[in-house]
Simulated assay, not measured.
Amino acid sequence: MKTFLKFLCPIMALVLFQSCKKESTESKVVIDPYTYAAKFNWMEDSIKVDNSAWTKVAKGNLFSWLSQDGKVQKSNFAIYNKRANIKTDFVYAIQKDSVFALKLLSDTVYFLDKNGNSRADLKGQVTLGKDTSLILRNTGASPAISVKYKLEK
């Protein structure tokens, strides 16, 4: 009987542990949204195809820059929900929010590819002053497209 109990107890313990409810070992994904101090909205103003004249855009789309310290020069992320006029796609830094990375050096805006390198097909020029403007030129589209933006105040 002693031997029987020695075998029965471990078998019963094994059966009891096997019947317990198992919890998933995968942890929940926590999305930490990008936080920013200021949002600068650039409104599409004019568009030009190749070397033609500038044409006014009636209801332009917004191109929003996000800045961590409240200065447009310190922007390094942006949101551009409707990219119909620039005809390009971005490699998103945060897919859900369509936030992508940009780099502003002096007066030139560079857009980063999936490896963090500056793209050659899409660049921008920023003119800061009384009439602050931004011109994006997409040479990746055929024909090349340029879009002029005005900073909303």
Rank of each mutant, 00 (worst) to 15 (best):
I86Q: 09
W65P: 00
K71P: 01
Q73A: 13
I86L: 12
A58P: 04
D69M: 05
S64L: 00
L62Y: 08
K74C: 07
S67G: 02
A58W: 02
K59N: 12
S64G: 02
K59I: 05
I79K: 02
N81F: 04
S52Q: 11
S75Q: 03
K82Y: 08
I79F: 00
F77Q: 10
D45S: 15
F77I: 10
A53T: 15
T88M: 05
K87V: 09
G60S: 11
G60V: 03
A53E: 15
G60M: 06
D89G: 12
K56G: 06
W65A: 03
G70A: 04
F63L: 14
K56F: 13
V72N: 04
S67E: 02
A58G: 01
R83K: 13
I79P: 00
A53G: 13
S52D: 14
T88G: 08
A78H: 00
V49G: 08
N61R: 04
K56T: 14
D45Y: 15
V49D: 11
K74P: 01
T88K: 01
G70H: 02
V72K: 05
K74F: 07
N85I: 04
A58Y: 10
L66D: 00
V49L: 15
A58K: 12
S75L: 05
D69Q: 07
D69K: 09
I79Q: 01
S75E: 03
K87L: 11
K87R: 14
Y80Q: 03
N51E: 14
T55D: 11
T88Q: 04
K87A: 11
K82Q: 09
Y80F: 14
K82M: 06
A78Q: 00
D69W: 02
G60N: 10
K82A: 05
Y80R: 06
N81E: 12
K59T: 07
S46D: 15
N76F: 07
K48A: 08
F77A: 10
T55E: 15
S46L: 13
